[in-house]
Structures are given as C-alpha cells and as structure tokens.
Design a protein around this nucleic acid. Structure first.
Lengths: 246, 246
DNA sequence: ACCTGAACACCGTTCAAGT
DNA sequence: ACCTGAACACCGTTCAAGT
C-alpha cells in the first residue's frame, strides 16, 4: 500500500539524492505549514518539534531558515496580515471618500480575522515593531497608507493620528471578541458541560439566565457594522474640527 | 543576621515541625505569588517550577492545591478581577444614573488593567466560563449586576444586551492597547534598538516619520474618555429606542 | 549545502515514598 | 497531612558530525 504507485527507476534512485515527492525546505514553506498547524490545532500546538514532524524533518533543520520560535511567530503574523494586500476589495488609497476607504479596510481585516480565528490573537498580542504601532493595523506599509489616505481626504495631521488610534482600538476589541467565540470550540467547552451544575449556578443570576438567548445570539456582523458606523460618525466630527481651523 | 531575632526555645524547636518563618502553603498564597511573579516578570516567566522556587517549595507541592497550570491562570484572572469588588469608586447599582454607573465601572476596570499591565492580556485571552461571557467583564456577578443596573435605568432587555456587548468591545480594545504600551518595556525594545536601521527603514514612510511624535505621544487617558463618551452617546440612542416602544 | 544525533537546560504532571 | 525524588514525556536551542 505504501510504494506501489511510486516505482522509482534505478536511474532516479542513484542520480537524485532526495525522493521525488520531497520538496526542499524553505522559509516560506515553514511559515505556511505553521499557519496551517495553528489554523487546525491552535497556537499552543505549534512547537518546533511538532512543526518539523509536519514537514518530515527534524526540528533542528528549521533553524537554518529562522532564528527561533519567536521569529517564526512574527513571520506568521506578517504573512497573515499580508493577505490583505491581495484582497481586491481593500484599496490602498481612498477612491470614493475616506468613509468608503475605512469601510473596506475594516472589512478586509475582519475577513482575515475570520479566516484565521485561532491565529488572530497572535496578531493582537505579538509586540509590534515599535510601541506606537498598534495591532491589528501594525504593518508600517498599512499605517503609512492609512495616514496618507486620511490626510488627502481633508483630515489634519493630528486628526489622522486620532483616527488611527480610534480605528485600531475599535478593530481590536471587536475582532478579538468575535474571533474568541469562533475558536472557543475546544477550550471553553468542558467547564459548563455537565448541564446540572450549569443551570444551578445560573439560578443566582436571574437576569443572565433570562437574557442568555440574546447574549448567546450571534449578531457579530451587524454589531460590527453598527459600531463601525458609530466610529465613522465620531471621526466625521474629528474631520470637521480640522475644517474649522483651516 | 538570619536568626538573631527569632530565638526559638527548645520547646518550640521540638513541638513545632516547621520553622517559625515558614507560612504553610495555601491556594491563596500560591495565587498571589503567581500574580506577583507575572507583574514583575511577565506571564511567560510563570512556570510551576519557578513558582515553587518563589515559595520555597518543590513544584509538585503546588498540585495539592491546584489541579494544574491552566487552573492557576484562571485563578489569577479571577483574583485580579475581584479587586474591583473592593474598589470604593465602583458601585454595584446605579445611584446617579446609568451613565455615572458605566463611567465608574469603566474606570474601575481601567485601574485594574493599569495596576497589572502584564497580567491584563490574560484577562482578555483566557477562555471564559461560557462563550457568551465576554472579557474583560467576564465574571457572572458583574454581568448580572450590569444587566440589572441598565434594566432599572430604563433599558429594554435587548438594549441591555446590546449595551453589554458594546461596552465590553470598547473596554477590551482600548485597555489592551493601552496596556501593551506599558508592558512593552522588555519585548519590543530590541527590534528597533539599532537606531541606524530604524531611521533608514522609516525613510520609505514619510507620513509615519513626520507624525511619529504624535503617534508615540501618550494620550491614552483622554482617548479613553473621548471614546467612552462616544459609546455612552450611542447607548443613549439605544435607550431612546427602548422608550419609544414603551 | 543541507540535514541530523546527541546533548543541555528547561517544561508540566504523576505517583510512590518519605517525614 | 504535607511535602519530595524520581520518572515520563515533552519543550527550545546549540553544535559537532554526517551525507
């Protein structure tokens, strides 16, 4: 069952060092294997030894391509964020006003978060390159185009910075909470599993038990929209203050 | 210098098993030692073996009082959140209207976050008891009093739930970002330490380098206030929709 | 040039044994 | 009753050695 279809000829066996199916290791291949492993089993399962096993290699080989585990995690975050660069709905510059620009950017990051729910906390918690770069908009290129975009659309320099900070806080809070309910499949299950203790515990909390259906209901998408609208409304004021001074 | 003031009598030495200075182990003592260790050296430094050393005990002894490391981390989070219960500025029920109530609650959680910047990410990322409980307002008692408070102040049931979700998203985003700049002392320093590469990198990003002072400036407190005001404004609308229907 | 074996200093956790 | 020694199965990382 193992080698019936491969049938290596004598020539292949002697001239080629590695078997046909074995792709050589590379930084890119390592990082995407790491992302796949995190997506499947969570960040806690990503160890150098286990990742090596996934790539049919001993763990030590990875150190030829990456300085260490910390750098691997940074590379994972960068690679995930880079997915936005190929998202056709996310534009680099405002073309239909700043509100449309921020809408596209926000939804682009949300799509990335939902595509990698188990990896997104990493995007949020990894230290950034500089303390004034804020997750999840933590990439220098995106920050630059963000500032440039808002300035071209009539924001003052101070206003653009205010907008950057408000926008990142909003995205971080919402996406982290949305994603945590998605990735909770393994972790949060066992606590409230024995239904008896669960219901009895809640007897002390009448409002929680009464509103539990609402609390549990998934309106993440519309809450994201509403809150984004609220933020854009506030930023309209920020932009207006700019205009008054000009 | 070690035992000049203790002077154990022969009776003490023979009847008492443990030396005078040695407090017996307890779950409470373990948890507070864990918090102290995290506050000082960060979550990554908290290992069972190292915590044992801090308590002058072998790591295995800890398992008499706690099922394992995961449970220890949960206990750490619960204990930190409980600090709010003894905060005189945080009230259980609204006494001067719901806006005052939410202001006090928000500032209470912010004080806790700022008191334990290295531990707060734990509060944010640990799985909650149920998927519909959202950090940082993740404690059943606080959620119950939150809902009860808003309902008494004229919110509809749906409105109270909307308020809970909006309030938690807001707190999580803001406090996580505020706290990450405080705890970044060790982690984020080395990347941009060699000032040459730093400045040259930023040459490609003119707006970032121009606005860097503003980006780096700490307005966390006033941003928190402004954003909290914005949220309370939105919630006023939510409450108003309640009234219209009533 | 690329990978590995062996080693080091760490982990969390269990369990029989010590006092 | 409370703590520990020894052991197990894991870590990340280094470096001399293999092909």
């Amino acid at each position: 069952m193992s080698d019936s279809t491969e049938q290596p000829t004598d020539a292949e066996a002697t001239t080629m060092v590695a078997p046909v199916g074995r792709v050589p290791l590379s930084r890119e291949r390592i990082v995407s294997a790491a992302i796949a492993l995190i997506d499947e089993r969570g960040v806690a399962s990503l160890s150098m030894r286990r990742l090596g096993k996934e790539l049919d290699v001993e763990a030590m080989s990875l150190y030829r391509y990456l300085p260490g585990r910390e750098d691997l995690l940074n590379a994972v975050v960068d690679t995930i964020i880079d997915e936005m660069y190929v998202d056709p709905d996310v534009v680099i510059e405002p073309s239909n006003g700043w509100q449309d620009y921020l809408q596209r950017l926000a939804h682009g990051i949300r799509r990335v978060a939902l595509a990698h729910p188990k990896a997104f906390p990493l995007v949020a918690s990894r230290p950034t390159e500089a303390p004034w770069l804020r997750p999840p908009l933590r990439d220098l290129r995106w920050v630059e185009s963000f500032l440039n975009g808002l300035l071209r659309e009539g924001f003052s320099e101070e206003g653009a910075v205010v907008a950057y900070k408000a926008f990142t806080s909003f995205l971080l809070g919402h996406l982290l909470l949305e994603v945590s309910t998605l990735g909770a499949d393994l972790t949060a299950l066992d606590v409230f599993n024995d239904d008896e203790s669960h219901e009895s515990d809640l007897a002390e909390f009448p409002w929680i038990s009464r509103l539990r259906p609402w609390l549990a209901e998934d309106h993440a998408a519309s809450e994201f929209e509403d809150s984004l609208e609220g933020l854009l409304g506030r930023l309209t004021v920020v932009r207006g203050e700019t205009r008054e001074r000009a």
